[in-house]
C-alpha cells in the first residue's frame, strides 16, 4: 500500500517536472544565445577589441568615437530617411490597396496573391532584380529611350544623393503587399453594423472612412508600424544586393556599417557599439508594444 503510494507520488512529481524539462532546452538556448550574447556584445562595446575580442575595459571610448565618425552619421541619416519613407509609403499603399480591394472587387482572388508574392522572395533576389531594372544602361531608362521617350532620365542608383531612394523603391515593392494583407484583415474584422448605422446617418464615403473605419484600424496600423520599423532597422541584405552600400558610402545603413567595421575593418569594439545602438532602437519600439500585447492576453 505504502509502496504504491510513493509510486503515485513519484509519478505526480514527474508529471510536474516534465513540462519544465520540455521547455528547458529552448530556455537554455535563449538565455545563452540571445541574452548571454547580448550581454557579451555590450561588454565588447566597452573594450578595445580590434580584429579579435580583447577584454580591456575602456569605458565609453568606442561610443564617443562612433558618434564622431562621419561614416556612422551617414548610416544613421540614411536609416532615418529610409525608415521614414519606407514605413510611410508602405502604409499608404497598403491601406489604399486594402480599402480598394474591399469594395467587392471582381478578381480579388487573383489580385491578392499578385500583391503578396514579393514577400516570399529573399531580399537578395529583390535586390538583384531591381539593381538591373534601375540600371540606366539596361533598365527602365534604356527601355523608355527605346520606346521613344528620349529625354527620360532615371540614374538614381548611380547618384550619391538619390541612391537611398532606390532602396526605398525596392523595399516598398517587397513589403507593401504584406501591409495590404494586414489592413485587409483589419477591414474584414470591422463590424458591419457600425458602418450601416453611419450610412443611415448620411455619412459620405470619405467621412465614413476618415471618421470611423480608419480609427477602427488602429491595431493594424500599430502592427504594421512595429513590423516595418523593425524590418527597416534590420535591413542588410537588400543594401548588399542592390547597391553594396554605394555609390561610395551613399547607401550605408547601421547594419552594413556594423558588419564592415567588425569583420573587415578590424574595429570590433566600434562594431559592437553600433550593434548595441541598433538593439536599443529596436527595444525602444518593441518593448512597449510587446508589453501591451502580453498584458492584454494575460
Amino acid at each position: 500500500m505504502a509502496n504504491s503510494n510513493t509510486q503515485a507520488d513519484f509519478r505526480t512529481r514527474l508529471q510536474d517536472w516534465i513540462p519544465k524539462l520540455v521547455l528547458s532546452p529552448s530556455l537554455a538556448a535563449m538565455l545563452v544565445f540571445v541574452y548571454g550574447f547580448i550581454a557579451f556584445t555590450v561588454y565588447l562595446s566597452f573594450t578595445g577589441s580590434k580584429m579579435l575580442p580583447k577584454y580591456d575595459w575602456i569605458g565609453f571610448e568606442n561610443y564617443a568615437r562612433l558618434w564622431g565618425l562621419s561614416h556612422w552619421w551617414t548610416a544613421i541619416t540614411n536609416l532615418g530617411i529610409f525608415a521614414f519613407l519606407y514605413i510611410t509609403i508602405c502604409t499608404i499603399i497598403g491601406l489604399g490597396l486594402a480599402i480598394f480591394l474591399d469594395q467587392k472587387i471582381r478578381g480579388e482572388g487573383m489580385l491578392r496573391p499578385i500583391y503578396l508574392y514579393p514577400m516570399a522572395l529573399s531580399f537578395i533576389v529583390t535586390g538583384t532584380a531591381w539593381k538591373w531594372i534601375m540600371d540606366p544602361g539596361i533598365g527602365i531608362e534604356n527601355t523608355m529611350h527605346l520606346w521613344g521617350w528620349e529625354s527620360f532620365e532615371f540614374g538614381w542608383i548611380k547618384d550619391r544623393d538619390m541612391a537611398i531612394y532606390t532602396v526605398v523603391i525596392a523595399a516598398v515593392w517587397q513589403t507593401s503587399g504584406f501591409v495590404m494583407a494586414m489592413f485587409l484583415a483589419g477591414l474584414r474584422g470591422i463590424d458591419n453594423e457600425i458602418l450601416k448605422a453611419a450610412q443611415i446617418d448620411g455619412a459620405s464615403n470619405w467621412n465614413l472612412y476618415r471618421r470611423i473605419v480608419i480609427p477602427l484600424l488602429r491595431p493594424a496600423f500599430l502592427s504594421a508600424f512595429v513590423i516595418l520599423s523593425h524590418l527597416a532597422v534590420k535591413s542588410y541584405d537588400l543594401i548588399i544586393a542592390l547597391t553594396g552600400g554605394g555609390p561610395g558610402r551613399a547607401t550605408e545603413l547601421p547594419a552594413t556599417f556594423m558588419y564592415s567595421y567588425t569583420f573587415t575593418r578590424n574595429s570590433m569594439g566600434i562594431g559592437a557599439a553600433s550593434a548595441v545602438i541598433m538593439l536599443m532602437t529596436i527595444a525602444a519600439i518593441m518593448t512597449p508594444y510587446l508589453y501591451a500585447e502580453l498584458k492584454e492576453k494575460a
Binding site: 535563449m30 556584445t41 547594419a255 527595444a283
Partner: peptide
C-alpha cells in the same frame, strides 16, 4: 518574444 525581434548584429560576434 523579444528575442524574435533583436537585430542579429547584436549576436554575430559571440
Amino acid at each position: 518574444l523579444f528575442s524574435c525581434f533583436i537585430p542579429f548584429q547584436i549576436v554575430l560576434i559571440p
